Simulated assay, not measured.
Amino acid sequence: MKPSLFGREPALIIGAIGAALTVLASLNVPGIDAGAAAAITAFAAACIIAFTTRPVAPALFTAVIAAGVALVAEYGMNVPDGVTGALSAAVLAGFALFGIRPQVTPTSDPMPLR
């Protein structure tokens, strides 16, 4: 039996890591504005979730929505950088917990319970 990435819950763990990185990316990133940094980080996290779970569609939907929220917050709503990161992170974490997790399973066999 081959363990999956990060054990039994790759969607939740990667979503939490991605949400934290999204907030960090939106704060004082040199060379790129906060909305773009948050969008790229959220999109990358959701794509990694799609790579480690099946079916792929819920994670890709989350990638588009999380990146879109960051871009709309940065360019459409003109809110502070911290708010942009917080919004994008909240969407990524919320979708990972309530949208992706109930619908997907790890691509490899889960680790046995001990």
Score class of each variant (00 low, 15 high):
Met77Pro: 07
Tyr75Glu: 11
Gly94Asp: 05
Pro55Cys: 11
Gly15Pro: 01
Ala59Arg: 01
Ile14Tyr: 02
Ile65Asn: 02
Val104Arg: 01
Cys47Pro: 05
Thr53Arg: 00
Ile17Arg: 00
Pro112Cys: 04
Lys2Asp: 06
Val79Leu: 12
Leu21Gly: 10
Tyr75Phe: 15
Pro110Lys: 05
Phe98Cys: 13
Gly35Asn: 00
Pro110Asp: 09
Ile48Asn: 08
Gly7Val: 10
Ala86Gly: 15
Leu71Trp: 06
Asn78Ala: 09
Leu92Met: 04
Glu74Pro: 02
Ala20Val: 14
Ala66Asn: 02
Val83Asn: 05
Ala86Trp: 06
Ala11Lys: 04
Ala66His: 03
Pro58Ser: 12
Ile48Phe: 15
Ala86Thr: 12
Leu21Trp: 07
Ala36Tyr: 12
Leu27Pro: 02
Arg114Thr: 13
Ala44Leu: 14
Lys2His: 09
Lys2Glu: 07
Pro80Ser: 15
Asn28His: 14
Asn28Val: 09
Asp109Lys: 13
Gly82Met: 09
Val72Ile: 15
Ser88Gly: 05
Phe95Thr: 08
Ser88Pro: 00
Ala70Pro: 03
Phe6Pro: 04
Ala89Met: 06
Ile14Trp: 01
Arg54Ser: 14
Ala44Asp: 02
Leu113Met: 14
Thr105Glu: 13
Leu21Arg: 03
Thr52Phe: 13
Ala59Gly: 01
Val64Tyr: 04
Gly82Ser: 08
Thr53Asn: 06
Ala37Ile: 03
Thr53Met: 00
Leu113Ile: 15
Tyr75Ala: 14
Ile48Leu: 15
Thr84Val: 15
Val72Cys: 12
Phe95Arg: 03
Ala11Gly: 01
Pro112Asn: 07
Asp33Asn: 15
Pro3Lys: 12
Thr62Ser: 06
Gly76His: 11
Glu9Gln: 12
Glu9Ile: 08
Ala20Phe: 11
Pro55Arg: 12
Ile49Pro: 01
Met77Ala: 15
Thr62Leu: 04
Gly7Ser: 11
Ala66Thr: 10
Ala66Trp: 00
Asn78Thr: 08
Ile100Trp: 07
Pro30Ala: 11
Ala57Thr: 15
Pro30Cys: 08
Ser88Glu: 02
Thr52Met: 14
Gly82Cys: 08
Met111Pro: 04
Leu60Lys: 15
Gly68Pro: 00
Arg114Pro: 13
Gly85Ile: 02
Val79Lys: 06
Ala90His: 02
Ala42Gln: 04
Pro110Arg: 06
Asp33Glu: 14
Ile65Leu: 11
Pro30Val: 08
Gly7Tyr: 09
Val69Glu: 03
Val23Thr: 00
Phe6Met: 14
Ile48Met: 15
Ala44Phe: 07
Glu9Arg: 12
Tyr75Cys: 11
Pro30Gln: 10
Gln103Glu: 13
Val64Ala: 15
Asn28Met: 10
Ala59Asn: 00
Gln103Phe: 12
Leu5Val: 07
Pro102Leu: 11
Ile48Tyr: 13
Met111Leu: 14
Val72Met: 13
Val56Ile: 01
Val29Thr: 15
Ala39Met: 05
Ala90Gly: 05
